[in-house]
């Protein structure tokens, strides 16, 4: 009875009410920020007295924004590629491996996801200061890779677990070398997991703030660092413009991910 919406009586209005309020609560900041980015009030009056594209012009006029976005994109792409490759290898070991302590290894691989990022950030900051990686591209990639890898492993092991290894065996008996069987049969079959891993890894690196604050140097800044430093000075609507573009990117990636899922089920 409680698991049938139509039989809930008055309760269903309570449930629906809470859900609607929550949806509004979740949407409010996102809609607000998009509206704000087109508002012409420097003091963020809402609703704004008029509409303007001024903040977007300011955003694109300032080379520092574009530069940091470009840095972010480069780092995120490298992190994405490495995270998928390492995640694939590790997932094969975790799902198909025949060694003792697989469960322990899995838990170990996932710890960077559980530990507060601030600890990893401070630890890497100290370590990189010592070995001279602070403020470098490599340092950024290494730091982001550490936190992206667990998500990549979760996505890929999830897909790999549902894939029957007998199918790979069949490919081998058909005459494919074990590596060829993996490349031509297993990999396409778990591609949805690999794509999720790639999207997760890209977004994690692209949006990552805490590690980036510590890794950044005046010459090498990611977009979140740029937003962060600006935010600490004032709440200029330029940030709203930048944020709107970020929301747009998220929506695009979500649609891509949904299309991949749909293609998979078709």
């Amino acid at each position: 009875m409680l698991m049938n919406f139509d039989k809930l009586g008055t309760w269903r209005w309570v449930l629906a009410g809470i859900a609607v309020l929550m949806a509004l609560f979740l949407l409010l900041p996102i809609v607000f920020i998009v509206a704000l980015s087109f508002g012409d009030s420097r003091w963020l009056i809402f609703p704004p007295p008029g509409w303007t594209m001024r903040w977007y012009h300011e955003l694109f006029a300032d080379p520092r924004w574009l530069q940091s976005a470009w840095t972010s994109a480069r780092i995120a792409v490298v992190v994405m590629v490495l995270s998928v490759i390492l995640g694939l290898l590790a997932s094969f070991a975790l799902v198909r491996g025949q060694f003792r302590g697989r469960a322990v290894l899995r838990a170990f691989f996932l710890t960077p996801m559980i530990l507060p990022v601030v600890i990893i950030a401070v630890a890497l900051y100290a370590f990189f200061l010592r070995i001279g990686l602070n403020g470098t591209f490599t340092g950024f990639v290494a730091a982001h890779l550490i936190v992206a890898l667990p998500f990549s492993i979760i996505a890929i092991t999830g897909a790999l677990k549902t894939f029957d290894p007998a199918i790979e065996d069949a490919a081998i008996l058909c005459g494919a070398h074990p590596w060829e069987a993996r490349a031509r049969v297993t990999l396409p079959a778990i591609s949805h997991g690999v794509f999720s891993a790639a999207i997760f890894s890209f977004l994690i690196s692209w949006d990552e703030v805490v590690l980036a604050i510590f890794m950044a140097s005046p010459t090498l800044q990611t977009l979140p660092v740029r937003v962060w430093t600006t935010l600490r000075q004032d709440l200029t609507p330029v940030i709203a413009a930048a944020s709107t573009l970020l929301v747009l990117l998220t929506v695009v990636l979500m649609i891509v991910a949904a299309l991949i899922r749909k293609g998979k089920s078709r």
Binding site: D169, A170, A189, S191
Partner: peptide
């Protein structure tokens, strides 16, 4: 050697 397995092992893609 050719083999047919107990489980369905067609390549799903």
């Amino acid at each position: 050697i050719g083999m047919v397995f107990q489980r369905y092992t067609l390549f799903p893609h």
